[in-house]
């Protein structure tokens, strides 16, 4: 069973936990920058919002965005300082998550690509087609090697959900180029 720490063949030690000793988590500085950017956006993005009559609404629509923005900027600074001092986040664990090997960002990029394709095509081709492609594409990226079967399952799901929403819930999903066929 898996009681002992996982050590893969060929690799002397798991990469991720080892990195803990190797100085600050630089990527986390990027997170701090992102948090600060959201904070600045909250303040700058509501700068020109007009306040109502002060008697009716003394606080006005700019108050909360400023509080939130300021807090985000302060938190970003705190995070940056903590990061430089060697603070690391605990990456989330889960049933199917194996943190002992390096994250595979290539897979994530491919999934995001498939997702973007779905966004680009859904209006034209319709959900019944893009949904099936989405399912088969994701299964393929995650290691399934049965194209035909994946496409069939995907098509059953997408056409099935089209009719389930149409008949069962009264929500007509746009049919796209299959207009008139479905």
């Amino acid at each position: 069973m898996t009681d002992s720490p996982v050590i893969r063949e060929g690799a002397p030690a798991p990469d991720a936990p080892d990195a803990a000793a190797a100085g600050p988590d630089r990527a986390q500085l990027g997170l701090a920058a992102l948090v600060a950017a959201v904070g600045i956006f909250c303040i700058a993005g509501t700068w020109n919002v007009q306040a109502g009559f002060s008697g009716v609404d003394p606080l006005g629509p700019r108050f909360l965005p400023r509080v939130v923005g300021l807090a985000l900027i302060v938190l970003a600074v705190l995070l940056a300082v903590a990061t430089l001092r060697g603070d690391r986040g605990e990456a989330e664990e889960g049933e199917d998550v194996d943190l002992s090997h390096k994250p595979d960002w290539m897979t994530v990029a491919q999934l995001a690509g498939i997702f973007a394709l779905n966004i680009a095509l859904v209006d034209f081709l319709g959900w019944a087609i893009t949904g099936a492609l989405l399912f088969a594409g994701v299964a393929r990226v995650l290691g399934s090697r049965t194209w035909i079967r994946d496409l069939i399952i995907g098509a059953v799901l997408s056409v099935g959900s089209f009719y389930a929403f149409y008949v069962g819930l009264g929500v007509p999903i746009p049919p796209g180029i299959l207009d008139g066929i479905l």
């Binding site: 069973m1 898996t2 989330e92 889960g94 049933e95 199917d96 998550v97 194996d98 943190l99 090997h101 994250p103 595979d104 960002w105 897979t107 994530v108 999934l111 995001a112 990226v141 995650l142 290691g143």
Partner: peptide, 16 residues
């Protein structure tokens, strides 16, 4: 978020 995170770390061995 969960699916993408799992995809980056998918357990390579079959579950027991």
């Amino acid at each position: 978020g969960e699916a993408l995170w799992v995809a980056a770390h998918l357990r390579r061995r079959p579950v027991e």
